[in-house]
Nucleic acid binder design. Structure first.
Lengths: 215, 215
DNA sequence: GCACGTTTGTAGGAATTTCCTACAGCAAAG
DNA sequence: CTTTGCTGTAGGAAATTCCTACAAACGTGC
């Protein structure tokens, strides 16, 4: 996901605590991510950027005290190398996107996109790339999941279903008549193919796309 | 956290995908939670409750197509045993809270509360309790964290700091001159004392309260 | 001041997870 | 026909999650 070895120094500005916590818990599962700061407001963000020195700033379009664009412009004027990822409330119009890119924002992800888009975009832009997922998708991050599922072998699909049902590995192994380690291998391979990193991603994916009748 | 052994059958209605995903990934880490359905709108929710048969419904106050209260009232009229947890955008006034409780809503959590509040409330209300955290805190969930930190022993604090810095366990063990298993024990004890379940919670807590200068 | 209960430091186990490597057989592609 | 890659199989190392265990120290009640 990331080519460099250096950590991604992240600053997150999101107004609502519940949302910020959820996102941070998710992002902090990646040990390449080093959270160097967070705040609820644009003003607090501007005040602490100097000392926090993030490489990437995730900031909401609509903050309690200001709009993300204005804050981003201020931040970029002092830290031109900062990669800013804007979280928009709605899909962004071409007009508005042009304004954002003009301002030097590296990526826009809307709140209606899956969270994987945000994570992938995060790693994408820290290497200097620009990502405009709300308007067009360069390599369709996370939409390839359905195609990826079709790429699973029969055995892999079977294991995917069992694992997503939270059946313990050793039960699956017994049921299939193979070693636990083999089941683990299937699991690993499934995760790699689908681009997942944690069990909840697989559970949710299977429920949404291939599991109609849950237990 | 939960006294019964039966799974918590959960339905989640949240408009924004990014937010819904983050929350679901978090909640699905608990294997007592069985997600039986999710949707973006109130109408879709009402349509699928019959077949999904959740025990708890998490629903936003402001949905794209309707308001959560109206949907909850409809849902409760058909499924009186359903425990509804409303996610409000702002702290709820006493007036509004009275209306919610009158309607049979079991809990209100605002988007400005930490996510632990939501998780704890979820398990709380499924046992028939009522929780009104946005207005008053019955047992101050998650605010006890700071007090809990004071209850950590010296050694525990030291290990908490090292673990939160993502220093590998075996390095910590070596550095402290004890076995890996001992470090694990400290970690377990820290998690129990602070009420945490995943590493990101500890990382975030330490950054926010006891780690001023992050590496 | 002593005794009993709790906390602290220490450590082990079992099952899972995450991330790797390995290898044989088969299928597709050149 | 041969090379390349995918599939099924399995092992290892480290971490995680959830337990139990036990001796020393601490403390509080009486």
């Amino acid at each position: 996901m990331s080519q460099g070895n250096r950590k991604l120094r992240l600053y997150v500005t999101i107004g609502q605590r519940l949302f910020r916590d959820s996102l941070l818990f998710q992002l902090l599962l990646h040990n390449e991510i080093d959270l160097v700061g967070e705040s609820e407001t644009g003003i607090d963000t501007l005040k602490s950027l100097e000392s926090a020195r993030p490489g990437v700033l995730i900031i909401e379009e609509n903050l309690p005290d200001n709009d993300g664009l204005t804050i981003a412009e201020h931040a970029l004027s002092e830290h031109p190398a900062l990669a800013v990822l804007l979280i928009s409330d709605t899909p962004v119009s071409a007009n508005r996107l042009a304004i954002y890119l003009e301002a030097g924002i590296k990526a826009v992800v809307s709140k209606h996109q899956p969270i994987q888009d945000l994570v992938k975009t995060l790693f994408y832009i820290r290497n200097g790339q620009v990502y405009v997922g709300a308007w067009q998708k360069p390599d369709a991050p996370s939409q390839g999941m359905l195609n990826a599922y079709n790429a699973l072998s029969g055995r892999e699909r079977e294991v995917a279903r069992l694992i997503a049902s939270r059946i313990p590995i050793k039960d699956i192994a017994e049921q299939l008549g193979v070693s636990c380690k083999t089941v683990h291998s299937y699991k690993d391979r499934i995760f790699v193919k689908l681009g997942f990193e944690r069990l909840p991603e697989l559970i949710l994916f299977m429920k949404r796309h291939h599991n109609g009748a849950a237990a």
